Computed example of a mutant assay.
Amino acid sequence: MSSLGTLSDIELAIRLKSDDEPAFSEIYSRYWDKLYIMARKRLNDKREAEEVVQDIFSNLWRRRDRLELQKGFSHYFAAAVKFEVINRLARRARTGVVASADATGYSDIPDMATLHTLDFNELYARFQEAVNELPEKCRIVFHLKLEHGLSQKEISRQMDISEKTVEAHLAKARKKLRDDLGNISSFFL
Rank of each mutant, 00 (worst) to 15 (best):
G72A: 00
S74R: 13
S74M: 08
S74V: 10
Y76N: 00
A80R: 10
V81D: 02
K82T: 01
K82Q: 06
E84S: 05
E84F: 02
V85E: 06
V85G: 08
V85C: 10
I86C: 04
I86D: 06
L89Y: 01
A90V: 06
A90E: 05
A93K: 11
A93H: 09
R94W: 01
R94F: 02
R94E: 07
T95E: 07
G96Q: 08
V98D: 10
A99Y: 00
A99M: 01
A101D: 06
D102H: 11
Y106E: 09
Y106K: 15
D108C: 12
I109A: 11
D111E: 15
M112G: 15
A113Y: 13
T114R: 03
L115T: 09
L115C: 12
L115F: 03
H116R: 02
H116S: 06
L118G: 03
D119E: 13
D119A: 10
L123Y: 12
L123S: 02
Y124C: 07
A125N: 07
F127G: 05
F127M: 10
Q128V: 13
A130N: 04
V131Q: 03
N132H: 12
N132V: 05
N132A: 14
L134Q: 00
E136Q: 11
K137C: 15
C138H: 14
C138P: 01
C138M: 09
C138K: 14
R139F: 02
I140F: 02
V141G: 05
L144D: 06
E147Y: 01
H148K: 07
L150P: 00
S151G: 02
S151Q: 07
E154N: 07
E154T: 08
S156H: 12
S156G: 14
S156T: 13
S156R: 11
S156D: 13
R157E: 15
Q158F: 09
M159R: 00
D160V: 12
I161V: 12
I161T: 08
S162V: 01
S162P: 03
E163Y: 07
E163W: 01
E163C: 09
K164G: 13
V166D: 04
V166L: 02
V166T: 09
A168D: 14
K172S: 10
R174E: 03
R174I: 05
R174A: 05
K175T: 10
K175N: 08
K176D: 10
K176R: 08
